[in-house]
């Protein structure tokens, strides 16, 4: 499959700053693409548009040539966010958080080091690193074709960062999922990606 952003322009509201201006990017599901850009240049916004959370003012997002908005039901493009504590419902226990996503194979939770004991806890009872493992698992449902990883390991310690990425790389390779990784760290993206786009 091919995920393509064509000539995307975007600003929040009408009188705020132009965040994206005629930006295009194309990736296939065999690729792991890294995106480096200065902060405030709209990397997160771009991910949100690619995953269908925001509509661009101009331009379009195509999945295999068809606009992403035409795909009904589970969205094949899933985003993993920078701050896991802000994207889980604090009133759901972790088992229910996982169930929000698509059907999940048991080995994914295992591969990410999610312990059975954690499933009955609430988000406030887990550390940021533990929560992020759940968020990654939630995005790796059966029908996921593309994963957008927006600074997913900045708050993790180095060992956890390396553990999580090695699992993620292995998983997307095995299932033919395309990956877009956004980070400020060039050495990290060089390790993770097959191609790195520098927007600076």
């Amino acid at each position: 499959m091919i995920l393509e952003a064509k000539h995307i322009s975007f600003r929040y509201g009408t009188d705020s700053r132009q965040i994206l201006n005629d930006f295009s990017l194309k990736l296939t599901c065999e690729e792991r693409v890294g995106l480096i850009a200065p902060s405030g240049s709209g990397k997160t916004t771009f991910c949100k548009i690619l995953a269908g959370y925001e509509k661009p003012d101009e331009g379009e997002v195509l999945l295999d040539g068809r606009p992403l908005s035409e795909y009904k039901g589970y969205c094949p493009v899933q985003m993993i966010w920078q701050h896991p504590e802000q994207v889980v419902n604090p009133r759901l226990c972790m088992k229910e958080v996982l169930a929000e996503g698509d059907h999940l194979e048991q080995r994914i939770a295992e591969g990410l080091g999610i312990e059975t004991d954690w499933l009955n806890r609430y988000p406030a009872e887990l550390s940021g690193g533990e929560l992020q493992r759940f968020c990654i698992a939630r995005a790796l449902g059966e029908r996921t074709r593309f994963v957008l990883a927006d600074e997913i390991s900045t708050m993790l310690d180095l060992i956890t960062q390396s553990q999580i990425w090695s699992f993620l790389i292995q998983e997307v390779e095995k299932r033919g999922i395309g990956l877009l990784a956004v980070s400020h760290s060039t050495p990290l993206l060089k390790q993770v990606c097959t191609r790195v786009e520098d927007l600076e």
């Binding site: 080091g113 310690d157 180095l158 060992i159 956890t160 390396s162 553990q163 090695s166 060089k190």
Partner: peptide, 19 residues
């Protein structure tokens, strides 16, 4: 040393387990 080896520029290796 495990932290050092986990740096992306030093091989990006990891050890199992959690703190």
């Amino acid at each position: 040393r495990a932290l050092w080896r986990a740096l992306p520029q030093n091989g990006f290796q990891f050890i199992g387990g959690t703190q």
